[in-house]
């Protein structure tokens, strides 16, 4: 068979544009996911049972259904309820954020639970409220411990964001499909797309390693 380097060179800029969009979706989704996950993770540890149950339902539902189906739900099913078409970008970010939030919630819950109970007691015995204790004492310590699993979540999201190609959103995978539709260069383009994903995930994992080393060598500060 012929490996057409020329084709790769020609379509590379287009694919890179797609990669840029992929990074954008990933960063936004994990960003929102962090926010959602922090609150849901804390909610799962709440002593108020309705809060706890709602948080658990959310996490179970998201983790128990495929992201692809969640994307369809938001892009195709939700418009029927709200009576308005949803922009693919908004749908993609929403689906990925809500999805990521559930996984991040579990990461936060684990991180918070790993902090010694004496830390809460020390904070509370000084007259600090529960919120102050969380904010100044527990979360800063938990956050350092959850850097590695958060890094994994970031990498997983980057790869899973390829699923939003099904609603026609032009990130890296979708761009690949479009180029192939025009040029029939399946082999060259999918190889290139895979390579670009690999470079991105590899970069993230090295960066997380760096953060981990920087914060973990002295576990405490």
């Amino acid at each position: 068979m012929n490996f057409d380097f020329e084709l790769i060179m020609q379509s590379f800029p287009l694919l890179l544009l797609g990669a840029g969009v992929t990074v954008q979706i990933t960063v936004l989704s994990v960003g929102f996911g962090l926010l959602i996950g922090m609150f849901v993770g804390i909610a799962r540890l709440s002593t108020l049972w309705p809060v706890k149950v709602l948080a658990a339902i959310y996490v179970d539902f998201i983790r128990g259904t495929p992201l692809l189906v969640q994307i369809f739900l938001i892009y195709f099913a939700l418009p029927i309820i709200v009576g308005q078409r949803i922009d693919p970008f908004i749908a993609a970010i929403t689906a990925c954020s809500v999805n990521s939030g559930a996984y991040v919630a579990e990461i936060f819950r684990g991180g918070i639970q790993s902090i010694d109970k004496g830390q809460v007691e020390a904070g509370r015995s000084l007259g600090m409220t529960w919120v102050q204790t969380m904010r100044y004492i527990i979360l800063p310590q938990a956050f350092k411990r959850i850097i590695p699993p958060l890094g994994n979540e970031f990498i997983a999201m980057l790869k899973d964001s390829s699923l939003v190609s099904v609603i026609g959103f032009e990130e890296l995978t979708r761009r690949g499909q479009l180029v192939i539709a025009r040029t029939y260069g399946s082999f060259e383009i999918w190889t290139t797309v895979a390579f670009i994903y690999l470079v991105m995930t590899f970069t993230i994992s090295r960066f997380v390693d760096y953060l981990e080393r920087r914060y973990m060598t002295d576990d405490k500060h």
Binding site: A122, G123, S125, H221
Partner: peptide, 13 residues
């Protein structure tokens, strides 16, 4: 009411 614990419980960070 101040409290001192067996295991100190200082904030390590």
């Amino acid at each position: 009411v101040g409290m001192v614990f067996q295991r100190f419980n200082l904030f390590p960070h």
